[in-house]
């Protein structure tokens, strides 16, 4: 279908919208298919618009204004808490990493403590099970910690913890300043 636009179309549409037709244009619209289509579509759609105006009550400008202000405040609040949420998550991660690092570093002490617990099955009432669990746990940690401490010594773990802590402080300071 090839678009055929009659030169009178815009006048026909304007006549429909305004309701002001001249006799020549009306005669033309009756004979020209393109203008007849345009007139029919424009007339029906404009009647729908008039119908909407008559039947639907739109919201008051004041309501829309205040609702927009509420939404803006809400959005501003969300923006303000975004860095706090991020820092909270980072803090959790730091705690987990620090606990893991402390476990590796102080492994001999922890092993001795676990061993002491495993050595008193009668008082704990779940002796053989506890012994198996603590045995597996200590074997897993000692292999990891042994590899790390033998290779580079506890200084490496201390350095890793310090770097994470400094990174956390830098992030917190950045967000605090950027928010201000």
């Amino acid at each position: 279908m090839k678009p055929h636009e009659c030169e009178n179309e815009s006048r026909v549409i304007e006549a429909v919208r305004s309701g002001r037709w001249d006799a020549d244009l009306r005669r033309h619209a009756a004979l020209c298919q393109s203008c007849a289509d345009a007139a029919l579509a424009a007339r029906v759609l404009n009647e729908m618009r008039a119908f909407d105006d008559a039947e639907h009550r739109i919201r008051d400008a004041g309501f829309v204004w205040w609702k927009a202000q509420l939404l803006a405040k809400q959005a501003a609040g969300e923006r303000a808490t975004q860095p706090i949420n991020f820092v909270e998550r980072l803090a959790c991660l730091c705690v987990v990493l620090s606990v893991a690092a402390a476990c590796f570093w102080q492994w001999p002490v922890i092993r001795a403590w676990l061993g002491a617990l495993a050595g008193k099955p009668a008082s704990l009432h779940f002796g053989s099970f506890w012994g198996q669990v603590s045995g597996a746990f200590s074997a897993a940690i000692s292999s990891g910690a042994g590899a790390l401490t033998n290779a580079r010594g506890p200084g490496l773990l201390l350095a890793v913890s310090a770097v994470i802590f400094l990174g956390f402080v830098a992030f917190a300071a950045y967000f605090a300043l950027s928010e201000r």
């Binding site: 829309v64 927009a68 202000q69 303000a80």
Partner: peptide, 27 residues
């Protein structure tokens, strides 16, 4: 919360703009 909402348009200007555009926009 002390949060300021700063729209470029003031309420009076918005009301005028809204009166002009709301009906056509809704339809």
């Amino acid at each position: 919360d002390g949060v300021e909402t700063s729209f470029q348009m003031d309420e009076q200007t918005f009301r005028i703009f809204y009166d002009r555009t709301a009906r056509p926009l809704w339809s």
